Simulated assay, not measured.
Amino acid sequence: MCRLLGVVSSQPAPIAELVAEDLEPFIQLACEHKDGWGVAFRDELGAVGVVKGIDRADDSDMLRGLLKSCVTDMAVLHLRMASPNLAVEMANTHPFGDARAAFAHNGEIRPVAFLESLISPELLATADGTTDSERFYLAVREQMDHGATPEEAIARTTTAIREGAEMIISLNSMMLTPTGLFTYSEHDPESEVIGRRGKGYFGLSYHRSETKTLVASEGWPQPQPQWQPLPEQRVAEFTTGSLAPQIH
């Protein structure tokens, strides 16, 4: 399973400054979530950029340099813990996507063949890797390519997965587009992962301040009332113009 962190700010700044005191505790989670890292961000032209690596985040000079130099107002960070039998390679490293959207997932969905049934052959042919997570993204992308808004695409795709997949450990995900950050929280409360980790392991919470909002999975202290949980089976939308979550 993986770890997710997103940030949206009313003013651009280096990602390291936006995440501030929560950055180092997040990166240190790579002691366990050690199978690569990825960063998605909105660039100065309004497109989505993605940079990733397969080294440990806490040992990566490339990551630390990027976080200090990349000036943006929206970003998503992902630490990967590879699912069994999935290779640790760039093609399987989150976030997935292009200049239109970048998508990161924390969980597992089976069978992969069901996910592929939600994707057109032409779009499926663009897959780089072998993960269920990339196919989750392509199923969302399929909806967006046919006119759905990001929140509609995520809602339709997660409903289809819930109704048709044989196994869902978690659908927790973040998608960054040129217009906003979209998050989704849902997991199986009976999964063995919950038994090992505790009921909060797949939750997403957010912390809003005057100029920015952080959204993250757990792993370091996130005291309430500063951090508030996001509702399950709902899409939360965060924009630079309205830092509070809009729940769909």
Rank of each mutant, 00 (worst) to 15 (best):
A113N: 07
L181I: 01
V140T: 05
P121C: 00
R42T: 06
I161F: 07
I109G: 02
P231L: 08
M81S: 15
T126K: 04
T213V: 12
N85Y: 15
G129I: 00
V112M: 07
Q233C: 09
G36V: 01
Q143N: 10
S173N: 12
Y184T: 04
L45D: 15
E151V: 07
N106E: 07
T159P: 03
G97V: 02
D59S: 13
S209A: 10
A101N: 12
V7W: 08
A216T: 15
P245R: 06
H94T: 00
T158E: 06
E152T: 10
L45V: 07
D61Q: 13
E89V: 09
W37L: 00
R135C: 06
P150H: 00
H248L: 13
M81P: 04
A20L: 01
P150Y: 01
V39Q: 12
V19P: 13
D188S: 06
S173V: 04
Q11D: 11
V50C: 05
P231D: 11
V51H: 13
K199P: 14
Q28S: 15
R196T: 12
G49N: 02
K212A: 13
T239P: 09
A75E: 10
E142K: 01
Q224Y: 14
P150M: 05
S191H: 10
T179K: 12
Q28W: 12
C31P: 05
I169E: 15
M90I: 15
S185K: 12
A40C: 06
F182C: 06
P84Y: 08
R156L: 15
R162A: 15
E24A: 14
E142T: 05
T240W: 08
G46E: 07
E142I: 06
L138K: 04
T158C: 14
A113I: 04
L204G: 05
H105L: 07
P12N: 07
A82K: 14
L23T: 09
V88N: 15
L63F: 09
K34N: 13
G36S: 10
T158N: 08
A82W: 11
W37F: 09
F202H: 03
F114S: 04
V235W: 09
K52T: 04
F96G: 00
D55P: 03
E17G: 00
G46K: 01
P231G: 06
M74H: 05
R156G: 15
Q143R: 15
G65E: 11
A104E: 10
I54N: 02
P14F: 05
T183F: 08
S60C: 07
L66T: 11
V50E: 00
G46L: 03
E192C: 06
H146A: 11
A30K: 08
A148W: 03
D35F: 08
S69Y: 09
S10D: 10
V71K: 14
A30I: 05
S69A: 15
H187N: 11
L138D: 01
T93I: 09
K199V: 14
A87W: 10
P223S: 13
